[in-house]
Every structure is written in structure tokens, then in C-alpha cells.
Amino acid sequence: MSALNIKEMIGKKRTLTQGHRMCPGCGAPTAIRQAFMGIDYPVVVVSATGCMEVSTTVYPYSAWNVPFMHIAFENAAAGISGVEAAYRVLRKKGKIDKEIKFVAFGGDGGTYDIGLQSLSGALERGHDFTYICYNNQGYMNTGAQRSSATPLGANATTSPAGSRSSGKLQRAKDLTEIAAAHNIPYVAQTSLHNPFDVMKKVKRAVETPGPAFVNILTPCPLFWKIDTSEQANICKLAVNSKFWPVYEVIDGKYYLSYEPKPPAAIEEFLRAQGRYSHLFKKGAERFDLVADAQRDADENWEKLLAKCMR
């Protein structure tokens, strides 16, 4: 792998251009920008339905400066399977001579939920592609509904906090672990507050032959109820509080990318976001849920550490 040099990146042709219509302060375009910064190959991109897909391709304009395809919500991985298979056969037949890389992406709705089967199928079949999940922990394109990536206690529009409910009452699914269970050559979890971690991991994913999966934490200011300027700060807090560990699984071996010393309390991460404000409402505090969230983070962290190479 060549070193990542910012000045080189600044001069490079963009994969995603300006003029996209994502909300101000959205983490998704940042994550996707960062993801492509370190890639030096021609790429073809396939996207699931979602904010990024809709807002980057408002007809007749497209903010993609590489070939891009969106078919539907649940099938980005199946779609790219076809593109990649076509590439392999056309290259074998001598109709294409250059080396092209394939990247599919989706939000957590299109990846954890409706697209999980298609993703699992594509990972199992071993297509040479990278799947990036830009994970804002819910369905943002339709207005902040809960997904299986939404964490415990979050106030989402289909798991609202009310007089008899404290937001989402279930834990988030651990999709990175599910991806790793496919025994694919590369799986990683990362966060956009550390662009070099994102770039390095996506670059490795793309350059690794076979399927790779990268899960990037990308805040949505509207759902998380944070200021539009807070994306990097809140991500940093997510990692420092062990809410979102950053790590890699290379050929089945776990490597921790960063260990916060000392870790921040989950409560600090939760208090920084409006989606958890009901947990701290005067007179109706739900410190039990906060404690559950802390225990989950601690246990997940210990499980992860036990797997990691030391």
C-alpha cells in the first residue's frame, strides 16, 4: 500500500463531486469522500437506495464522477455481484483491459435490514468487491425511523420516546461481526472523525482480493439531534466511550485500531445527543437504561479485546 498523502489527494480526480444535495453537516458524504480518497484505481460504484443515493443523483445531474448504478433498496450487493461478474468475464474475453475495482455502499437500513440477505449472499459467493455501510443508525431518508442498527434508548420516529416507552428498547445488531462470520478476507469498523483510519481501511478493503466489508459510523444531525458542526466530535466521543470500537478483521484475525485511555463514560456520549434527551428528563430519568448501555459497551469491548491480537 502506498502512503496516504493529502496533497496528492487534493489534486486527484474526485469520485464524488460537489453539488450533491445532502443536508448541511451530514456525515455520509464526508464518510464516502474519505472512503474514496485513498483509492488509486478506476472504480465502479453501486448504491442502495438511501439519502446518499437520492441526494447525489437528482436528475438530470449526478455528483458521481465514476460509473454509478442504483437499482433498489435491498440489492446493492446483488447488483454489484452482477457488475463484477460481467467485468471478470469481459476481461477474460479481452474486451476490457484495465483493472477496475468495485465498491457498493448503503446506509444501515439498506445494509443491516432490507439488504442483509443480498449482502450475505455476495460475501459468501466471494465476489471481488468492497461493501461500505455508512451507518447513521436508522432510516434517515424517510425521517429517522429505527433500524436494527439503532442503539438502545434512542428516540426514533418508529420507536419514539413516550410516556410508556423510552425510545428503542432493543440493542443494535452487530453487523460487523455478522460480516466477519462469513470468513471473508477483510472486515473493518471505523469512524469518520479519523479520516486516515477510514482511508486506510477502505484502501485495504479495495486492494484485498475477494469480498470486504467496512462499517463507518456517520452521524445524521437531524436524527442524532446534534449541531451540524458536530459530526467529528460526536464520532470521536462514540469511539472514546467504547460505543463504537474501531478494529479490523484480516483473514479472520482481529486487530484493535484504537484503545481509548481512559475511556469516556457512555453517559457523556448519550448526553451530547438530543435523541437520548428523554433518558435525562428531570423527574423521569432512565439511568437504568444508561447503565444498560454502559454494560453493553463494556461487555462488547471485553469480547472484542479477547478476540484481538496482542
Binding site: H20, P24, P195, A232
Partner: peptide
């Protein structure tokens, strides 16, 4: 430049930060 969702940090010929591209900047404040 690395955190801008809109790729709106303008750079000069030497690659140094030169200003904001206000044609695209949405003003998020990141």
C-alpha cells in the same frame, strides 16, 4: 478539508488552503 461534507475547502495551486468555495458551501460549520 478532510471533514467537509461538501468538498468546499478551496485550495491554491500549491495545494494550500485558500478559502471557502461558496458556490457549494452549505454553511454547516464543521
Amino acid at each position: 478539508w478532510l471533514q467537509c461534507p461538501d468538498d468546499s475547502i478551496a485550495t491554491d495551486d500549491e495545494g494550500k488552503v485558500a478559502g471557502i468555495n461558496l458556490f457549494f458551501c452549505k454553511g454547516c460549520g464543521i
